[in-house]
């Protein structure tokens, strides 16, 4: 029962809803969905019901679309502001410093670990993927960095400065996870 998990750690006890002859069927459904009464130490009753909420967003990548389309072609695209001589590894289509439009550039497919972590927990949507490694990637010739996943290596093997290479999904889903990084050949030795 979902409600029961929510209440873990609080000093209340739980009892089922009273069954009424009139609404048995409705109440059976509510009970199955998690409806319950919680009683605290002073005997105060709080009624809980489950209250689901699902949404499907029609999400446009809008001006960021070339980046995600690029991933499907095995390309990493950043942006560059020529007047500022600044290249973003995570693209932005207007310059953060002068406000002018930037132009799309291709990034190298190899870089280095700028920072990293191994997540042993995650949001609900990613719990089943744990443990996973996150990495901040620095590229030769780029002024900013890129957040990605780091695969094909363990927590013990990763270090700041490790050379890594980009890999692309053979069946792209048009998500940032269409690209990830792995240790460069030979990087795990020594």
């Amino acid at each position: 029962m979902k409600g029961a998990t929510v209440m873990k750690g609080s000093s209340t006890s739980k009892r089922p809803l009273k069954k009424s002859a009139k609404f048995t069927e409705v109440q059976e459904t509510l009970l199955k969905e998690g409806a319950a009464i919680y009683v605290d130490k002073k005997g105060v009753e709080s009624l809980y019901i489950d209250f689901p909420y699902h949404v499907n967003y029609v999400h446009s990548y809008a001006q960021d679309s070339p980046f995600f389309l690029g991933l499907a072609e095995g390309k990493l695209r950043g942006t560059r502001c020529e007047p500022c001589k600044y290249t973003w590894a995570t693209p932005r289509t207007h310059c953060q410093f002068c406000g002018e439009p930037t132009k799309w550039v291709e990034l190298p497919l190899q870089g280095k670990v700028h920072s990293w972590t191994t997540c042993h927990y995650g949001s609900e949507a990613f719990l089943k993927e744990t443990p996973y490694n996150l990495v901040i990637v620095e590229f030769e010739g780029a002024n900013s960095v890129l957040l990605s996943r780091l695969k094909a290596c363990t927590e013990e093997q990763i270090y700041v400065g490790m050379p890594i290479v980009a890999k692309f999904a053979s069946e792209p889903k048009y998500l940032i996870t269409d690209v990830w990084f792995e240790p460069a050949p030979g990087a795990l030795k020594g």
């Binding site: 990548y61 960021d64 995600f68 995570t90 700028h114 920072s115 990293w116 972590t117 997540c119 927990y121 995650g122 949001s123 949507a125 990613f126 993927e129 996973y132 996150l134 901040i136 957040l147 990605s148 996943r149 700041v160 998500l175 940032i176 996870t177």
Partner: peptide, 23 residues
């Protein structure tokens, strides 16, 4: 677009920050 789908987890983001801080 760029951060959440990677594992959307604030503890992970702060870990990334402190790993570099320690470095």
């Amino acid at each position: 677009n760029y951060d959440f789908p990677l594992g959307g987890f604030y503890s992970g983001y702060y870990a990334l920050m402190v790993v570099r801080h320690i470095y």
